[in-house]
Design a protein around this nucleic acid. Structure first.
Lengths: 201, 201
DNA sequence: GGGGTCATGTAATAGGTTACATGATTCT
DNA sequence: AGAATCATGTAACCTATTACATGACCCC
């Protein structure tokens, strides 16, 4: 899985992508990344950045160009992408678009073990979740709106639109789940609660 | 983030959950986990399992009970959950259910950089993705159907139902995305392609 | 002019994955 | 009887995250 690609961290993908436009030094790249809100899509962490540059260098996908120094600031090493790096970027991106990967969201893990909690508690927790989802949705929507107003083409917002689509699907699912627990005719709550009383003894 | 909980790996959550039913030794727990298809919901990896037991022991959430040996097989150490472990299990599960977490799916990363590929290619790649999503959906549906037929209560399949809901949402999103690119009136393809010709020079 | 925060990077530590090891059982 | 697979665990290696360091600039 991580063995196929010489560098597996998705942050490296962003680095290759930015370097394909112009050479940069790591700190600058990190700043640009955050300014573009890309840190919402790709986990970014200052320390990891330097690691990724090192790995990419070892793999031959980028190479250090010049090392400058302004005044007494630490040295900045500027890196440029190589031909191999461009090839890797393209190949990797294509794969990520074309092939869905099995992933492990935290909520899936929680759901797989949720029977361990009593049903009444679960209902309350799910309602809290719905509130949190509404917040996340509003935040994403706000980013979309503001960015569009600034005149950016919607193509550069598809990832945020995708997130919105998933959030909406999750809201619908959670609402349906609550309904199946609480249905007055054949809801799951009674049987579920019964299991618990047995276990807790 | 991983600093709040003394043990952050979700595999530890599954371990606590299983041990709350009866003491087990790591290998047995791993086997049980895989038999229950829980490895679809929580990343499982033989090597990590022993690490997690060690971490849980250090944190005081589990404790070694007995070390037995059958014939000349390696020793097996049986672990039991502690009271602190039960508390952690419950608190953690509640948190995971109630609070949505910002995550970083690979496809989001790809979408955020997708403008780097030419639009015609993207359309073809997205169609390939749709095929892959259909496969994943069929697999999940198959698991649901077979498990229900075996008489298991649907509560123990919610995580798979959730996955199905997300897969459906993703399919709808990707179809919509393809449509927005290819729309004969005001599709994005022409402008997108134009950027590319400029860049590739 | 002292206290934050920016700019830039290195080092220490912890976490996770892969590879290795080895006797037992089962299959052919 | 040799090959494959199961059972069980340890060790080596990479990756990633946190903490540390240090001069410059800006604010009040």
């Amino acid at each position: 899985m991580a063995t196929r690609r010489k560098v597996g961290n998705l942050l490296a993908l962003a680095v290759l992508s930015y370097l394909s436009q112009r050479p940069m030094h790591p700190y600058e790249l990190g700043r640009t990344l955050r300014e573009h809100d890309d840190a919402r899509s790709i986990k970014f962490n200052h320390g990891s950045l330097y690691m990724v540059f090192e790995q990419l260098t070892r793999a031959g996908f980028v190479e250090p160009r010049e090392t400058t120094r302004e005044g007494a600031r630490p040295e900045r090493t500027v890196y440029a992408i190589t031909d191999a790096g461009r090839a890797e970027l393209e190949d990797w991106l294509r794969e990520l678009v074309a092939e869905p990967r099995h992933e492990y969201p935290q909520f899936v893990a929680a759901l797989s073990l949720i029977a361990a909690l009593p049903p009444d508690d679960v209902i309350a927790l799910l309602r809290r979740r719905l509130a949190g989802l509404a917040e996340a949705r509003a935040e994403a929507q706000g980013i979309v709106d503001r960015t569009l107003e600034a005149g950016v083409h919607p193509l550069f917002l598809v990832e945020e639109e995708y997130r919105l689509a998933l959030l909406d699907a999750e809201v619908a699912f959670v609402e349906g789940f609550v309904a199946r627990i609480t249905d007055p005719d054949d809801g799951w709550a009674p049987q579920w609660a019964a299991w618990h009383e047995k276990e807790d003894r």
